[in-house]
Design a protein around this nucleic acid. Structure first.
Lengths: 148, 148
DNA sequence: CTAAATGCAAAAGTTTTGCATCGGC
DNA sequence: GCCGATGCAAAACTTTTGCATTTAG
């Protein structure tokens, strides 16, 4: 999906919910999109507040991240210790993550069979799935060469 | 595994690491074991400090939970919002979780094929897996009958 | 004009840490 | 006796919130 299209849809989402279309909200989508696919809120706060003009304050960033989750453009994908790593998913197909515990590298992968397993398990327990998250923690190939 | 056997192994673990076998550490295993399989640290702190004699302070509980994770008797299994839910796994076979976002119910399930998927994916990326966590968030059968 | 959004600072919640004291070994 | 463990209170982090002010519709 194009970024412009996403922003349009977000505007519709806001209007439909009775929220307001504000400069901060739209600019934050740009910032998040250009930040890279994975981010933590504190990084975003620092990065955004170092820009020419402050696009949004810390509270607005927290509030907007929540909104964007509700809208579906952002997802909490990795929970490691006390850190929460978000992902900008706009239009991206669903996928899971490998996380290198040494260097922090994140590798995305998709397996159709995980979706099938989810469906089977949920059917068995009469459970209505909303979303899932599979995190595989380990050591990536580069880090496994280092002795440390 | 018997609790007594687990405690013995934990003692060995402590000695081998050069840590000390203390009353708090051993009693905390009992407390955690009798708490039920899933717990949050704050619950544990409150519960433990309401007992006759204070088995351990908040800091000791935090430190001991870390130790028990290192030992492998405890695992962070669910990360939901800002909450961390731990599980006492001593001897239990590996499994995944369904989490009802309405009532908080936790259902455990095991699928051999998830392990196989992990192996295949990791091989493909030359990634050495240490552990994984699959969380399926949704609504359980009981909650799906309620309109709220 | 009205209600919602923002920024700030304060508060709340969770986890960690410095340090004096206590307790295994 | 020595060195690690514990308890306490303070600090560090992360996230949320109350309120005065600004801004979208």
């Amino acid at each position: 999906m194009q970024l412009s299209e996403l922003k349009q849809k977000f505007e519709q989402f806001l209007k439909q919910k009775g929220y307001k279309v504000t400069k901060s909200r739209l600019e934050l989508i740009d910032k998040i999109a250009s930040y890279g696919s994975h981010f933590e809120i504190e990084q975003l706060v620092v990065w955004v507040s170092n820009q020419d003009k402050g696009v949004a304050s810390r509270s607005t960033i927290y509030r907007t991240v929540k909104l964007l989750q509700e809208f579906g453009a952002i997802r909490e994908v990795i929970k490691l210790g006390n850190r929460t790593i978000y992902e900008f998913i706009a239009g991206k197909p669903h996928h899971e993550h490998l996380i290198c515990v040494k260097c922090g590298k994140i590798i995305e992968f998709y397996r159709e069979d995980i979706e099938e397993i989810q469906d089977k398990v949920c059917e068995e327990y009469k459970f209505t799935p909303l979303n899932h998250r599979l995190e595989i923690f380990g050591v990536c190939s580069e880090c496994s060469y280092s002795v440390v």
